[in-house]
Design a protein around this nucleic acid. Structure first.
Lengths: 352, 352
DNA sequence: AATCATTGCGTAAACGTTACCGTAAATTCT
DNA sequence: AGAATTTACGGTAACGTTTACGCAATGATT
């Protein structure tokens, strides 16, 4: 209903006494325009604050961008990747009407061969870009090189292999994430408390991933000079019963004032203390907005959940590629994701 | 480069042996189609999972949606509304290429007449919708009624007047926000601590706004049964020197273990304790990601900043209207904004 | 002086969808 | 039975941009 007649290419052409083709040439700064007309047109463009109509532009160039997504399959032990996929799917819904088509390839994060197989499959179709979550460092490096040879842009999510992907990284800053956990810890416990850092999970391929967090955590707390007694332990199991058994031994031995679970498996620790009121419950900090984790946050068993928005990572990656390819925007460096703190009082409003 | 030929209206028409006009009729379920062909076409649409090309659709309907934004002017005492405007501007940048045009009208939040004047100005141009931040409750109600008569949709941001706006509300849940502050407080102080709730600011028109937060805060803490001593005070000043004077009296009298500043003026309290090391610094909790607030968060003077993403509120409101008018999506109820917790360790990653 | 390449520009056909206009055939009304 | 109306559909011009193609004028090469 607004009376503003949209100022378009035709109007520019009329003002400059040239054809729309010439205007288009200077807009997309191509050849075949004399300097004098080019400058005349550019002046008109600036003066009238011309904004191209993206609908028309995108309709005209038959841009069907196609993107491959290569991430781990959701296992029953961790719903983490399901969240990530949720974000990807949201991106698919939103962008498929805009000429983007997205194919998702899943691999088993405990089996390298499935990654390689999925990687091969990617090359069977001609994609423009691939979003990949690097679990197997070396294999991913190979894959990225192969993409580069085939003119495929790459972008990482969730964890980074620095200077490897062609378009960058969307995900959390792991070291800072660890420091934040340390920060929250410092509010929860008194000086000289006993702190237990706990790695839970069968796999061990992403140790570097966890270690960065742990380093941030311990460095932060050591610098406080509050004489905490920090212990680091692994529980190499996924199943609750196995974890429970080891945990009961651990807790009996260490008697921690606080447990920092370094990944998204914090719910099993929560479950343990919820089912075993015979143990005095320590404070608990963990990661990720999984339903099971939120459950124990809501029950008051887990104090803080630190979240890195895996769903948003996926969505942002897609959105970034959309901007990069279709709107031809400058590669505006991808920032790290926000690191969110969830408590029993604000989790309800955490957006998906 | 993807080989998938986009499946469009023409393809449907070919399969159904009808013209594209007929297909269009059933797509936009209009009249003038027999039941039998309608069903045949619908079947084809479903089977081939047809997705309309949004570019073409939006190009075809000359939809220049125009939106008015009616929010308080940024004062030097509070940069809050500047953040909000930032989000709006981001929306303008992003959506202006898509046929949306947005005009911003500012009013003085300490002067009702400026609101009414701005409101009048809105009606001089024909807008489709207006985004309004309600400060003056009654006047806003009038304005909304007037919009309704003129066929203007309304949407609130930042604070709500329930059942008033036609499209809903984008903003924080104030009661929960107060509870969260209480929750964080409970981590910072010991039983029987002295807590000071502080309203800072000259104006008093948004008292209801603050009281909802305060109610959430006190209710939460009282329910804990930890015998806190909670005191509520106002400082009716904006200028630092005035606030400082009153604050020094207050602190001498009360000696709080924690100060909960109920709005975005927390930086002046931070500044006070930073400049006056002769006073023992209490814990401090406040609101909003303003540069000055973040400054004292970074200095370690403020413990927690609770943020409601004013910038995102503005952006979301615009995005909502875009979806509502242009993509004709169902009014998917607007959720409350996430309530974010910022500490010295994660503020760097807080997205704008 | 004839040929050829280059420069600078215009014309028109796409892109997929919407919506107006026209018109046979079918139905209803006199 | 003829006229009037309704039903069901087809044809086609927009929407603003991109781009393949064409063509005149100029300058360079024989």
């Amino acid at each position: 209903m607004s009376e503003k007649k949209k100022f378009g290419i035709k109007d520019i052409a009329k003002l400059a006494n040239v054809s729309i083709a010439t205007v288009d040439r200077v807009l997309n700064n191509r050849k075949d325009v004399s300097d004098v007309t080019r400058e005349k047109i550019q002046k008109i463009i600036k003066e009238n604050n011309y904004r191209p109509n993206m609908y028309a532009r995108s309709l005209s160039v038959k841009n069907n961008l196609s993107i491959a997504v290569l991430i781990p399959r959701t296992s029953q032990q961790t719903g983490y990747w399901e969240l990530c996929l949720t974000g990807i799917n949201k991106g698919i819904d939103e962008f498929s009407s805009f000429g983007i088509n997205i194919d998702v390839f899943l691999y088993d994060q405990e089996d390298v061969s499935t990654f390689n197989k999925a990687a091969d499959t990617v090359f069977e179709t001609k994609f423009n870009a691939v979003v990949v979550a690097p679990i197997f460092i070396e294999e991913t490096r190979c894959f990225v090189d192969r993409c580069k040879q085939n003119g495929l842009q790459t972008i990482f999510i969730n964890s980074d292999i620095p200077n490897s992907s062609s378009l960058g990284y969307v995900g959390p800053d792991l070291y800072s994430t660890g420091r934040l956990a340390g920060n929250l810890t410092s509010y929860l416990v008194q000086d000289e408390s006993k702190l237990l850092i706990l790695n839970v999970g069968k796999g061990l391929q992403n140790y570097k991933y966890l270690n960065t967090k742990i380093e941030g955590y311990t460095k932060y707390l050591e610098n406080l000079g509050r004489n905490f007694d920090i212990v680091l332990r692994d529980i190499h199991h996924n199943d609750y019963n196995d974890v429970s058994r080891e945990l009961s031994n651990l807790v009996e031995e260490i008697v921690p004032d606080l447990i920092f679970v370094t990944n998204s498996r914090v719910s099993v620790v929560g479950q343990f203390f919820h089912e075993r009121p015979d143990f005095v419950k320590p404070h608990i900090i963990g990661f990720d907005f999984l339903p099971s984790n939120v459950d124990y946050l809501a029950k008051g068993v887990v104090d803080f959940l630190i979240c890195q928005r895996p769903d948003k990572q996926g969505y942002l990656a897609i959105e970034y590629l959309y901007n990069y390819f279709l709107l031809k925007e400058k590669p505006a460096d991808i920032k790290s994701m926000p690191i969110d703190i969830l408590t029993i009082e604000n989790y309800l409003f955490y957006e998906n």
